[in-house]
Design a protein around this nucleic acid. Structure first.
Lengths: 202, 202
DNA sequence: GTCTATACTACGATAGAC
DNA sequence: GTCTATCGTAGTATAGAC
């Protein structure tokens, strides 16, 4: 009479254990082989269950993909809100990029690796409200490029590259043997260097 | 008796017109939708021919992909050869990266765009000798990272990022309206800035 | 929640006529 | 060189028993 009390707590907030194991396996396989090249059979095999059983947890293959971004962070939205209420000072560009690169953490690298491995899939992905997955970050980049004198498209590109430096670092690290901490640190140094390049050649 | 003389010259060195049109269409579709998401039917439709007719020009879908890299440039190999016979001076890193980024030209951007859209396909691609497509460039990067004091993995990553700056610039430009010339110029400025970052913090 | 069985579709690829 | 017709396979997805 005193045994099956806190089941829900053990399984935690959202989804069953199988569901989360499937998400984990899918993220791994999607990153290694690509989304289109990964079949539901492969994911199911990884869990030791039947292909059809996956449909008890997800409505479709795309639903698995979508679910991987359901609980994603809100750093971009928060930074965007912060940015929009800042006075337009010359230092704002650098300050914003530095704040952005400081949000890079090791536990986000798996998502970044998936993104760099499947750029076209990401571009076609929309969240539950129909907005593109990358929309908040793109909004930040647009605000930042607006800080750059118009007509200086190169500087706008360099700002974009600074914001995307974590992606570039992950890609650069594909053929190298480095720690996650080194990847993040390199991305941060690169972002700083790129912002300096924008400010340094007026 | 004086008409069909220089047919071969008009059709040029390698392959028929249909073959080249197929390559062109394939490169476009592979870049826009991804290699796996592009079917032979779509490529054939673009040419206004039947799917089966493609097999007269290419043995398989992968053969179309391979053919896109058959006539690729030899810049990487040449730079590698040059690099290997240089004395090891402190300036060699910067000098090599600058030589590399100076090989960026507008007519290579289509290939770069394809690569950034299909990173996993590229990783799995081998040329006719069985070597990875990116092997020469990787060899350059390896030589260059060897110039960096060992144990400084971050610097090695930054060098890799500098060499890959054209890819990063292309990706940054996806959501921006800029000219090819601006993309290349931004990539070159980024490469310089990254090399400076390596040398600047000893 | 997992299974077997199956429907349906699209793909890459081949055979053979013209 | 292009076509029609077809093969074999593998994928996503569903129905229904347990």
């Amino acid at each position: 009479m005193t045994q099956p009390v806190r089941r829900a707590a053990a399984v935690s907030r959202r989804g069953s254990d199988t569901r989360r194991r499937a998400q984990r396996a899918a993220l791994q396989l999607f990153t290694r082989q690509g989304y289109e090249s990964t079949s539901l059979r492969e994911i199911a095999d990884e869990l030791g269950i039947n292909k059809a059983s996956l449909y008890h947890h997800f409505a479709s293959k795309e639903a698995i993909l979508q679910s991987l971004f359901d609980e994603r962070g809100t750093e971009a939205q928060e930074l965007l809100a912060w940015l929009r209420e800042q006075p337009r000072t010359p230092r704002l560009l650098e300050e914003t990029v530095l704040r952005w690169v400081d949000t890079f953490t090791s536990d986000k690298l798996a998502a970044i690796r998936f993104m760099t491995a499947n750029p076209l899939v990401i571009r076609g992905l929309a969240d539950s409200s129909g907005r593109s997955i990358g929309a908040p970050l793109n909004a930040i980049v647009d605000e930042l490029t607006a800080l750059v004198p118009s007509g200086r498209e190169q500087d706008g590109l360099l700002v974009r590259m600074a914001v995307l430096s974590i992606n570039a670092a992950v890609q650069a690290a594909v053929h190298a043997e480095v720690t996650d901490a080194d990847v993040i640190a390199a991305a941060q140094r690169a972002a700083r260097a790129l912002v300096r390049e924008v400010g340094g050649t007026p």
